[in-house]
Design a protein around this nucleic acid. Sequence first.
DNA 1: GAGAATTTCGAAAAAATGTTCTGGCGTGCG
DNA 2: CGCACGCCAGAACATTTTTTCGAAATTCTC
Lengths: 202, 202
Amino acid sequence: MADLDALTSRQREIYSFIRSKIQGRGYGPTVREIGQHFEIKSPNGVMCHLKALQKKGLIHREPNMSRAIQLLDDPAVAPPLAGLKLVGRIAAGQPIEAIEQDEELTFSDWVEDGGKFALRVIGESMIEEHIADGDYVVIKQQDQARDGQIVAVRDDDGEATLKRIFRDRGRVRLEPANKAMKPIFRDKVDILGILVGVVRKY
Amino acid sequence: MADLDALTSRQREIYSFIRSKIQGRGYGPTVREIGQHFEIKSPNGVMCHLKALQKKGLIHREPNMSRAIQLLDDPAVAPPLAGLKLVGRIAAGQPIEAIEQDEELTFSDWVEDGGKFALRVIGESMIEEHIADGDYVVIKQQDQARDGQIVAVRDDDGEATLKRIFRDRGRVRLEPANKAMKPIFRDKVDILGILVGVVRKY
DNA sequence: GAGAATTTCGAAAAAATGTTCTGGCGTGCG
DNA sequence: CGCACGCCAGAACATTTTTTCGAAATTCTC
């Protein structure tokens, strides 16, 4: 990635103006449009900045062509990963924005890789695992599971159910995480996938 | 969405040429560029098609401006939402892929709107709300909160802490969701935001 | 077949746009 | 201080680009 630090503040302004135009309406600004927005009365003033941006590798231009500005590190090509800034600790007195955030809470691993789906939790059968009624569980599709894993299985009635799985002398034991409920035993179960995440929305 | 069926084959060709240019290099073609590509020797030939496309509502043009073509049903404006298929019930015997999925579990509301951040939960203070150690909470930044809401507040030591908030005779009571812990009272608290989501990854 | 819509050509006018040159102002640096 | 550099004004020029006018071939419809 091109280092934005090497830009002057003016150049950064102009760069993001160009970007906003391209993303906002689908085509970039002309030299004069840029000048008008920043109250630069001479096209040459803008030309200087464009040349600087070009030299620093942020944009590419075709000579003698109107609006022919390409953004080189185009985020449209590499769409922003769906993520949230992960703020682990809050330094006293500092605004949140100032905190160093080198981590992100991303959902791309759930969304992009495929082979996963979500299921809305009904009931309290996994409440001791802190999976509550109304939560969503993210399930990775696979038909095998190891002992002790939490799996989504297809129940007798065709509904999906979430249980911890154990093999028990040739049979399968499905154990809820709720003392008020009893484990169920089956000779064979239809595993839909294993639990990889929980999401709750308020 | 505009019905592409109403287009002649020529118009469809030209429309997708414009689209490919915009998406490929970031700026659209000029009238002449379109003409050159389709071997239309007169700019007016192209103008006709552009006017037709405009009348049919597929593009928008600004008069007297070069390359000022906007695609109206632009899919780049509505990027694919990050989401998981939401499978509420599993029909017996059918493969998962075959289930009707009209709902999705999306994270775009957390990611796109801004003003939100994530915090890793340390400890068991909210365990009765089924927010466990190691979970991530999604916080919407705001400095006000209503009684009973779960909020992230900046603690004395500068750390963030998650508590349920109540106003109690001029003072603020912060109540953990854990019987083993006692509520704390403060004259004034620094609210970082309110809880809007919980995410757990296995 | 008449008429409308689609498609194209050719030429020319008008406007927009990119480019270059000259000059000026300020800031930081050796 | 001289000098490089960022920043901009103003004017002039070359090109590109849009737009219009007039005309025609083709296809489709009523």
